[in-house]
């Protein structure tokens, strides 16, 4: 069942031009990220808060690849993220039937990491993939009923797209032209 959900998620995200990778653990996740950024010659990267384990893995990879990480506390943070080659974020959950990553944030900094750089890498735990939009409702209700703290929830179903000129599909007009979802703790790792 879970395997099916992961496949469905990957298929549906692919319909919208996004790619899905599967990782059994943090080490493998780091390897996948390494491959993506090495192939695309990523020089600067922005990331939201990740698990300590993954941070540790990445901190050993970035210097080797010569990747510079943007400090979350930088004064000109927006300008810097705007120049970054890739952003790494965590999706709170994902919806299989629509190939959607659900990002829930309380600071716009995190929205910029997934919307400004040309490459967006999003992590989601395998057990956080729900089958359908209907199943997303209870998870969203948790956000809203837990108090009145402000939030922005974004459904991301692939890279930025337009067909405004001559109906030609073009990816990445404003935001990412590539979206990579990495399914963590997956039983079907790459």
């Amino acid at each position: 069942m879970q395997d099916n959900l992961q496949n469905l998620f990957a298929d549906r995200l692919a319909e919208q031009s996004g790619q899905t990778h599967f990782a059994s653990d943090e080490h493998q996740t780091a390897k996948i990220i390494q491959k993506i950024i090495a192939e695309r010659r990523v020089a600067t990267i922005a990331k939201t808060s990740l698990s300590d384990e993954l941070n540790l893995e990445l901190s050993s990879i970035f210097p080797v690849l010569g990747v510079e990480e943007i400090a979350a506390s930088a004064d000109d943070f927006v300008l810097q993220v705007s120049k970054a080659d890739a952003g790494i974020t965590t999706a709170t959950f994902a919806i299989a039937e629509t190939g959607t990553l659900v990002e829930i944030v309380n600071d716009d900094r995190e929205r910029l990491i997934s919307s400004l750089p040309p490459i967006h890498i999003a992590l989601v735990r395998a057990r956080d993939i729900v089958p359908s939009l209907d199943d997303a409702a209870p998870r969203l209700n948790q956000v809203y009923l837990s108090g009145i703290s402000n939030s922005v929830v974004t459904f991301i179903s692939g890279p930025s797209r337009t067909a405004d000129i001559e109906l030609r599909l073009v990816l990445g007009v404003h935001g990412p032209h590539e979206v990579h979802a990495i399914v963590l703790h997956s039983d079907r790792s790459d």
Binding site: F77, D108, Y144, I148, S151
Partner: peptide
């Protein structure tokens, strides 16, 4: 004909930017 629009943002109040 898409299943969902690429980006659907549910904005509940204003957020800080980098704190």
């Amino acid at each position: 004909g898409q299943r969902l629009t690429n980006y659907v943002s549910f904005i509940s109040g204003r957020l800080p930017l980098a704190g």
